[in-house]
Amino acid sequence: MTEQRKIRVLIAKPGLDGHDRGAKIVARSLRDAGMEVIYTGLHQTPEMIVSAAIQEDVDAIGMSIMSGAHNVLMPVVVEGLAEKNAQDIAVFGGGIIPEDDIPDLKEKGIKAVFTPGTPTADIITWIKENISPK
């Protein structure tokens, strides 16, 4: 068969904040970088994100959180993936996240955190260097 492997990424907005512009801009940028992006919309629970990621067989999940709930929600997604034996799916995040919280998030399995002002090109580069399609 003519093989054509693509990086697939789920972009999700967990929690209750409705500020989805960042997520949409990232989704659009990844599309323009040749990736297949599944965008699930607002108000996702960690359970919904894990389930969608597995059904879509994505290579990575990017979460955008502006509400301050990142310390809770992001690690729960990582744990949920591990429970479903899907720890091969990389998790990264962005949004309003204080620098002080980042080391702890990384320790809990969040592979990268992109704070406000990050050029989208940096996110694309990080994905291309760290994620390969299955």
Binding site: G34, E36, Y39, S51, A52, Q55
Partner: peptide, 27 residues
């Protein structure tokens, strides 16, 4: 770019955690 933005799931949220529903997006 060959990329895609797949957004059909947005309107099928309620079934996200139902084990008897499987949704898959394709480009």
């Amino acid at each position: 770019s060959g990329g895609a933005l797949l957004g059909d799931r947005i309107r099928m949220q309620e079934h996200a955690v139902d084990d008897d529903v499987f949704i898959r997006s394709f480009a």
